[in-house]
Amino acid sequence: MEKMFMVKDGWLTITMPEEMDHHKAEEIREGADDYLLTGKVLHVIFDFSNTKFMDSSGIGVIAGRYKKVSCYGGKVVAAHANSRIRKIIMLSGLTDLIEIVD
């Protein structure tokens, strides 16, 4: 199985699950914050390569990490999101705060 969290050069990459809902949110939130607390992470990438579904719980997870890293000038990036995930992110208004890349 692919690792959910990976740190390289100050960037934490989070491999998002296939179904990003409330059931999965806590695991990601807690895991990510463990890495953020190490002080070795400045930016966060959410990798949506495997993700087919996301609801507002996913928005909560992204917004929560943004709040934490943005205090220190960190960036949040959403990568490889399909059109559905992009739509959800756009509707939430998060596009003003995070970067979306292919």
Binding site: D55, S56, I59, G60
Partner: peptide
Amino acid sequence: ELERSGMGFAFMEA
């Protein structure tokens, strides 16, 4: 505290 985004009803409506 649970990081609920507050978007639940907005998404249902959308």
